[in-house]
Design a binder for these strands. Sequence first.
DNA 1: AGACTGATTGGCT
DNA 2: GCCAATCAGTCTT
Length: 177
Amino acid sequence: MANKRLHSDFFTKDVLEVAQKLPGKVLARKQEGKIHRFIITEVEAYRGEEDLACHASKGRTKRTEVMYHKGGSIYVYLIYGMYWMLNFVTGMNSDPQAVLIRGLCGTYGPGRVGRLLRLDRSFYGEDIETSERLWVEDNPSDDLPGIQTAPRIGIDYSGDVWKNKKWRFFISEKVVK
DNA sequence: AGACTGATTGGCT
DNA sequence: GCCAATCAGTCTT
């Protein structure tokens, strides 16, 4: 059976809704003519300028520009000079939001995800609906695994309110198997 | 123009 | 547990 590619309407909803639905979905990456598929196991939501953990809390800049677009674009950025973080822009126009892909089945950690997928600067702003090399598909096995939530990682600088939001969503690898 | 820092990871003490 | 790697973006002078 052919998996069904998710369209932009999946990503134009509020980031908290999208983040909840993303674990269990299939991330597809085409390299050298071959399509590799990975089940998404863990994501984090970054929501608006008021969210001090979100890059958009710095305002609309060259880096955050794509987050202000409507959902469906790819947002990548380089962290610590060596890891490309993969995000999908969500929500409506002028409402900066994004979902960070933190883990795939068999790969835990956003830096490792970026390395596995061989991401680079050229993915910035790419359309997840029409891209020839990176997209998301529905999971054909329609069982809804129990989503677990926890605080986001690596954002202690954002203060008590924001660092304690349980905006990390994940499923256990057992459910996926 | 120069300084500082990070949505991380891996290696060493 | 601590710290280096490594650089684009952002902030400070």
